[in-house]
Design a protein around this nucleic acid. Structure first.
Lengths: 173, 173
DNA sequence: TAGAGAATCGGACTATAGTCCGGTTGTGAC
DNA sequence: GTCACAACCGGACTATAGTCCGATTCTCTA
């Protein structure tokens, strides 16, 4: 079922494929598809799951600066870089998983993970949770997809890193 | 037509009202409604138009600090405060106008206006356009709507102002 | 006022996300 | 082997955004 979805999405683009098509290609009924994944954003999330876990594992147990052991500002920079790579690689799929249902982005477990990680790295700021949400807002698939044609990958990445640096409290030497 | 839409939206909430209902209440056919407004986000944008113009006029010609005449950082603070008020007042409607069509937020004229204004105020930073987009990302209706139950109005507002301040280049005295 | 042409209207039509219920298949007890 | 029960499956069904074309009305000219 996931294979069929992945193949169709790759061939025709995530937007252009209907759930009926996926069900037909997978040889199951629509009911089964929806019972398994909830909605289209759930299907997208399931397809991203494996890739997501790789990044999460690198953050929790991998080598620094992405993993533990480096100073917070370096870890934040590494996270933004890595997440931005992941985002660009799967932009259409992530966008679908974030926007199919209203508010989907903020409910799914992955967002909670990224948010918690960034908030911990920002621990020394006045309101780490709010600041983490604000930083992640600039990493929303919808936002990046809209800006990509206008600004290009390099300017967006540089801007994100600059903003993250500005949000960190200056580590007085 | 706009009156009927405004009444229905106020009574039942923006999400719960279908375009069929609006057309029926306005005494016109669906075709007319869509020809006039394009889609549901266009209808929402039309309803917001008057309120939007008030804020835009205050920015262009009103008294400082929102209008011209104050230092850039004070104007930015005033803008975020005023826009956040406007956003909270019409959250559901703005959310509809931003999210009904994919990428709608970044295409509508109003976003261009806010972006240009913020970019001008950030003129002294390395990449004002990118930074303006990043700040406005935290003012997206979808984002604020998702954070409101978790953080509350005060924390969000304070965080926005803090981030804007951090993004400004320090005005050396 | 009559008629031609243009602009506008309205509701039937299509496409798609998501729901629901009757049928089917697997499982365990006797 | 067979019956009862449960879990699962699939496609018909609903709701809604958005399209399209025949019908209507408006306007301008003679």
């Amino acid at each position: 079922m996931l294979e069929a979805a992945a193949r169709l999405f790759a061939e025709q683009g995530v937007e252009a494929v209907s759930m009926d098509q996926v069900a037909a290609a997978a040889g199951v009924g629509k009911g089964t598809l929806f019972r398994r994944f909830g909605d289209k954003s759930g299907l997208a999330a399931a397809l991203l799951d494996a890739r997501e876990r790789v990044l999460q594992k690198a953050i929790l147990h991998g080598p620094p600066p992405l993993g533990p052991g480096a100073p917070a500002d370096e870890r934040l920079t590494a996270f933004i870089d890595a997440y931005f790579d992941y985002l660009l690689e799967h932009l259409a799929l992530i966008r679908m998983s974030e926007t199919a249902a209203p508010g989907a982005r903020y409910r799914i477990g992955a967002y909670r993970f990224w948010h918690r990680h960034v908030a911990i790295l920002l621990g020394a700021t006045p309101d780490p949770e709010q600041t983490a949400h604000a930083l992640l807002a600039s990493l929303a698939a919808e936002h990046v997809a809209a800006l990509l044609p206008e600004l290009g990958e390099q300017r967006i990445r540089a801007g994100l890193l600059r903003l993250a640096h500005a949000a960190m409290p200056c580590p007085s030497p």
